[in-house]
């Protein structure tokens, strides 16, 4: 079991300037990441970048599922209103 905070820390390590929010039950997690690094990248690429940050934990099945929502600061403005 790992905590949402631990997942958040893993993601933050790869995206130091991002807004990261993670919720979960110890095995299944949901994350929202807002980062400049997503600009000009399609959704698949954005999610691949986040999955890369938690690669080991997913490979070893410590994280069973990680549902993602990724935004650039600009697209975040439109959904957060």
């Amino acid at each position: 079991m790992i905590t949402p905070q631990q997942v958040e820390t893993m993601i933050r390590a790869k995206f130091p300037d991002a807004e990261v929010k993670v919720a979960g039950d110890g095995e299944h997690f949901e994350a929202i990441i807002v980062s400049d690094e997503f600009v000009d990248k399609n959704r698949v690429k954005q999610h691949q970048m986040v999955y890369a940050a938690v690669n080991e934990a997913m490979d070893s099945n410590v994280i069973h599922a990680l549902s993602l929502k990724t935004y650039t600061p600009e697209t975040w403005q439109t959904v957060s209103q």
Binding site: R43, V44, H47, Q48, Y51, M58, D59, A65, L66, S67
Partner: peptide, 22 residues
């Protein structure tokens, strides 16, 4: 891509469940 399901459209990877829903 580390998770299942995965969708392919015309031979191209579209994404998983989150992207499909969006």
């Amino acid at each position: 891509w580390p998770t299942i399901p995965q969708i392919y459209l015309n031979g191209e990877f579209l994404g998983g469940s989150d992207i499909a829903i969006e």
